[in-house]
Nucleic acid binder design. Structure first.
Lengths: 172, 172
DNA sequence: CGCATGTAGTTGCGAGTACAACAAGATGTG
DNA sequence: CACATCTTGTTGTACTCGCAACTACATGCG
């Protein structure tokens, strides 16, 4: 409406930030419609499941999972509840610290993800191949990582700050 | 967890997509805490208000606003209801098409935004100056625009597809 | 050991959102 | 003009999330 200057340096950084939100929201919906078809998992559930599937033993601590999924502990508890009701994950109490628990993929969950992830990856491949060169993609990833790390840092969520590689997943 | 290879070409595109979601979520929270201080507007409300403030006459059609804010018509109706209760916007029935209506900034709303936007812009300037060169910023904006347009297109929300410049705002 | 403090998850509650159904107006055709 | 159909926005309902309060366990200090 107002911004006729394409993104130059000083003008519309509001636009840049806005595009970040819009592209994330847009892709979220895009993936969402995908998932509802190939299974009965909501996009948020898929986001959690994919992180579990990519983790070492198919299980992660609740707190770790919450951080990765950008959810509060409360939100994650409910999310895992729902997926558990579907029989795709189970909880396992941590032996060394009995306060904590792991969310763990069940065989059914593993099976579902083994079937769903290739489609999802292919979908993403299709998008990125179409839109970006390899070099652009590398740059984009690096810049997004900077943004994420900065935000995490500023939000005080120390967590996995600068430069580390907590395998942000993609899920929905 | 699994991805030790920094973003190369073929490996972890899941990571790239994940970073997109995480950076958006992180910045959202970051801005959220900002807004709650400087006013009493929730971040979602701010997102809507800033788009109105940047529009031509401080008013936009409901449907247009919904598209810009990544909300469904339903969600926007409620959102505008809330802001209206705060006295920051009003509804104006469209004379040419009496089904439709405009959301319009009230003087109080205009005043609030005149005060709040500079802070918001300064905040964004601080982030982008710190993280990116001017050239990187241009590239980032261009790439995000591609992503957004692609997602809009695929989502069937025809709307303002490829290459046009609908002044995506930033709000939260 | 006994108690204060910190941490991991869970639950009550309020707020925000999407989906489906709907009301009201616009548009096209006979 | 009358009627079918589309479009714009609103409302009922159900779901998801975050915040604050809470339980259960762990840790540190006397």
């Amino acid at each position: 409406m107002v911004s006729n200057l394409e993104s130059n340096g000083a003008e519309d950084r509001l636009t840049t930030i806005g595009l970040l939100f819009e592209s994330a929201a847009g892709l979220r919906r895009l993936f969402h419609s995908q998932f509802d078809v190939s299974g009965n998992v909501a996009s948020q559930s898929f986001d959690i499941l994919i992180r579990l599937a990519r983790s070492d033993d198919g299980e992660l601590r609740m707190s770790e999972l919450a951080a990765q999924a950008s959810l509060t502990p409360s939100g994650l508890t409910r999310a895992v509840d729902r997926i558990q009701d579907q029989g795709l994950v189970s909880r396992r109490i941590c032996p060394e610290d009995r306060r904590g628990s792991f969310a763990r993929l069940t065989p059914a969950g593993r099976e579902l993800m083994d079937a769903a992830i290739p489609d999802h990856v292919a979908h993403i491949d299709g998008i990125l191949d179409q839109l970006f060169t390899t070099e652009e993609e590398v740059q984009l990833t690096a810049m997004l990582r900077k943004l994420r790390d900065y935000a995490l840092e500023q939000n005080g969520t120390a967590g996995c700050s600068t430069g580390d590689d907590t395998a942000p997943c993609p899920g929905d």
